[in-house]
Nucleic acid binder design. Structure first.
Lengths: 135, 135
DNA sequence: ACGTCCGGTATCTTCAACGGAACTTCCCTC
DNA sequence: GAGGGAAGTTCCGTTGAAGATACCGGACGT
């Protein structure tokens, strides 16, 4: 199929029912994995999932050692993707509340699958890493 | 507040049954998300999942425009984590075969959950992105 | 009048990832 | 003896994300 890199593997049903080629660099799953692979997004999403709603500084302390700049970037990106919503009140001092959108909440399911895998298998991964390091 | 990353949020059951704090920077899920967030790992794992076994150059062509150096790095990292196995034969010309370990195969399940989410929801994400871009 | 809180910006620097191209070793074929 | 795989390695350069630090503007308390 079109897309340059393509046709890499037409010979064995590599595209799913929806017509996506999971190996193509522009596959939707790449978009998703790219986003959740970024350093702070998971932490932000999980923090919001727990708290429901958090203000900027609350988020900052919950998430850990993130600098305001990077946190802002992360939040903007997630907002642009429709995963979180930002409501600003013009109180003084300023108040801004972040929370998950329904779309963001729906992402919790696959995230949790990943987390479950991690909890079950990370000991094996760490053991393998240690073996590799000492070798 | 004590800053040590721990005990960030003891006030609301934030640790799961296994005692992991999902928000801690050293949480196992971070390890996993970090790894799969890297640029080529997904592609390698999915290619191997399909083919079963691949040689270096086969992998290289399947995965796309990856340079040998980066592919080697990716493969080494995955091998160190126990997700793929590398068998070298001393034929000539050299032959090396890569395949998923059982651990690597077990990772396919959460990956697929993620992929399923992506396929269902990426249109919404892209729509949100476009709204954000034009605003 | 002064400092504080809040939600950020602005600027600078550092660091790891990624990439390109050439080189290597070993054996084989032409 | 010239060339050609296979599976990398080495050297070098670029880039983009992340971090540190400082600052801002407006209301508020004291």
């Amino acid at each position: 199929m079109r897309v340059d890199v393509t046709s890499v593997v037409d010979d064995r049903g590599t595209t799913d029912v929806a017509g996506h080629d999971v190996l193509a660099p522009d596959c939707p799953s790449r978009v998703v994995f790219g986003r959740i692979g970024e350093r702070w997004t998971m932490l932000v999403i999980l923090a919001l999932a727990r708290a429901g709603t958090l203000r900027f500084t609350e988020l900052k302390t919950q998430v850990g050692r993130v600098t305001p700049k990077v946190l802002t970037e992360t939040l903007r990106a997630l907002e642009d993707d429709g995963l979180i919503s930002r409501r600003a009140f013009q109180d003084s001092p300023p108040r801004v509340e972040y929370s998950l959108t329904p779309l963001g909440e729906s992402l919790l399911e696959p995230i949790d699958a990943m987390r479950a895998w991690a909890e079950r298998h990370v000991p094996e991964v760490l053991a393998a890493r240690e073996r590799a390091a000492s070798a």
